[in-house]
Nucleic acid binder design. Structure first.
Lengths: 117, 117
DNA sequence: GACTTGTACTAGTGAAACTATAACAATAGG
DNA sequence: CCTATTGTTATAGTTTCACTAGTACAAGTC
């Protein structure tokens, strides 16, 4: 379970953390029923605030990807399997976008625009 | 040329504007050589500041999607054609993601994560 | 019962987006 | 040439939000 963060990036830390978890789930590196590391541990090892990590966890909970319970931590839900089909389509799209010279933010904006239309 | 903005959204207005333009280009609604509406006009009709619109235009210029010249405005470059292949792949991906119940931000985060990995 | 872990609250800091004005410079078009 | 158009630049103020910090609390685990 490798959670990482780029302090230089413009995208918020809590979103980076959430994205990192989703990515691990999408890769199949973490499966339903497994636990994420405790928020306090992540906070310490990445040198970010506890609240920042919890915010990421809560975001994932709102998406239904994890269950949060005190004393037990963040547990991946069954819904994790849903991410697998995308782990094929997304790399293809990204590869094509890169070939065309599109920046990350441009591609992301196109996707978001399509989603909201 | 329909530019729109959602004041309630968390994504910056200038990015929404840029995304809106990219989307129009991707759809083929605007072609190379055509002009975008003047920044002042967009600012007034959408009730946002001139600088906010210009920031969006400058972002698109940095991506190579438009040329900016005083007195003439923002003109779509030849590069616009590059966006067309994506206008096929993106709707597919978004449709699949919606079917799986993924939120916009979750999908976007997965794409961004893949891009940076 | 002790420990772990998420929840909640309050408060402060810094960065970034957005707005508001105004003056300026290149281009287009009559 | 002259004028209107349109992007460029500068300055400054406001607001929002991410992030940090510290503390206390509650529901689980073992």
């Amino acid at each position: 379970m490798l959670l990482k963060v780029d302090a230089g990036s413009t995208t918020p830390l809590f979103e980076q953390l959430a994205a990192s978890v989703r990515s691990e789930v999408g890769r199949g590196a973490v499966k339903a029923g497994e636990r994420l590391p405790a928020a306090r541990d992540v906070a310490e090892s990445l040198d970010v605030n506890l609240h920042t990590v919890l915010r990421a966890y809560q975001l994932l909970r709102d998406e239904g990807l994890v269950d949060l319970r005190r004393g037990r931590g963040a547990v991946i839900t069954d819904r994790a399997v849903q991410y697998e089909p995308l782990s094929l389509a997304i790399p293809e799209l990204v590869a094509e976008a890169k070939k065309l010279g599109l920046s990350s933010s441009a591609l992301v904006a196109l996707v978001r625009e399509e989603y909201n239309s």
